[in-house]
């Protein structure tokens, strides 16, 4: 605050409109969209419906955390969907083999870290285009899943060995809030704290904002970039495990729409290289799933949701491109 003059004050207000207003804007969008759907169907505003929105949102919601962190460093991870599937299947497989739940989850997390390491090395160290590379990885992971499962899901409903997982995941709190939803909220808070209060978290923003400058200032750029992918894929694995436990089935087909939706979330949440925050990402998740839920409640077939999400992505990008131009 060395200088306070007229122009200074002005530019601070400009900053408010640019950055700090974004969560408010997203919240407004969320409220408006919710009100519209309530207009069509009174049940939309029920506690029951909202907890179901949260429940359907939590798979993509958790993955969007990682995708958002990737986007902060100007990367994409399209393999998240398949990594999530892999995680769910691996835990199911291990449980079947009699491995205790905690150890199975730990192994799956390690596998996620390895996937992230692989993507990170290819993208950060070998400087390959992240979009195409992770798209290719997704294909490779799908191949691996098919080789081991023949494309069949592992059902968890009838067997004793899956009970620890399913009962944990299907536990409800506050009436109708399942473990997954709590987990999602906890993860959002944890990652928010991680980004705000740790050196690595801050470094992610710095590396995303300007790699060369970060390098000169002593940050190990490649290590940070690799850790972004590791974080992203671990979150994907957690999401996949929670999904498997919640649905009582581990499937290879979890991943089809996840990359798309998580990228849509990251974009709608206003995440750009070097900037972004978890509150906005969370609001963006809610907006997208409110829209999806609202469409279903209006009796519009599933297929239209693809179109809706695609359109949201388009609009979000276009709005932001305009911002940049100003």
């Amino acid at each position: 605050m060395t200088v306070k003059n007229k122009t200074g004050v002005k530019s601070i207000t400009q900053k408010y409109t640019m950055k700090q207003m974004q969560p408010v804007l997203l919240l407004l969008i969320l409220i408006v969209v919710s009100l519209i759907f309530t207009g069509f169907n009174k049940n939309f505003m029920s506690w029951q419906n909202w907890s179901s929105i949260l429940l359907t949102a939590c798979t993509v919601g958790i993955i969007s955390i990682g995708q958002g962190v990737c986007k902060m460093a100007d990367y994409f991870d399209l393999s998240v969907g398949m990594v999530a599937s892999l995680g769910g299947l691996l835990v199911a497989f291990l449980l079947q083999a009699g491995v205790p739940l905690l150890i199975a989850v730990l192994i799956a997390i390690i596998m996620g870290a390895v996937c992230g390491l692989l993507a990170g090395v290819l993208v950060a160290y070998l400087k390959m285009n992240s979009f195409i590379t992770t798209f290719a990885l997704q294909s490779a992971y799908r191949g691996i899943i098919y080789i081991f499962t023949d494309g069949f899901p592992i059902s968890m409903t009838m067997k004793e060995c899956f009970v620890p997982l399913t009962s944990f995941c299907q536990k409800t709190f506050f009436g109708s809030v399942q473990t997954s939803v709590i987990a999602m909220i906890v993860l959002y808070v944890v990652v928010h704290l991680f980004l705000t209060y740790t050196k690595l978290g801050r470094s992610i923003f710095l590396v995303g904002g300007n790699q060369k400058c970060a390098h000169i200032c002593g940050i190990n750029v490649i290590a940070v970039q690799i850790s972004i992918f590791i974080l992203c894929d671990i979150l994907a694995v957690l999401s996949g495990i929670l999904y498997a436990g919640r649905m009582g089935t581990a499937t290879a087909f979890l991943g089809a729409t996840i990359p798309m939706e998580s990228i849509a979330v990251a974009i709608l949440g206003g995440t750009v290289a070097g900037h972004g925050n978890m509150l906005q990402t969370f609001l963006a998740v809610l907006i997208i799933f409110v829209v999806k839920n609202g469409l279903i409640m209006m009796g519009i077939p599933d297929f239209y949701q693809y179109i809706a999400v695609g359109l949201i992505m388009f609009i979000a990008v276009m709005v932001q491109v305009e911002h940049k131009g100003r």
């Binding site: 904002g209 970060a214 200032c217």
Partner: peptide, 18 residues
């Protein structure tokens, strides 16, 4: 502009990053 500063980050972040 390319290596010296994070142009899109706050001065605070620029100063503390070293």
């Amino acid at each position: 502009r390319e290596e010296g500063l994070m142009l899109r980050a706050s001065l605070k972040w620029n100063l503390s990053m070293t």
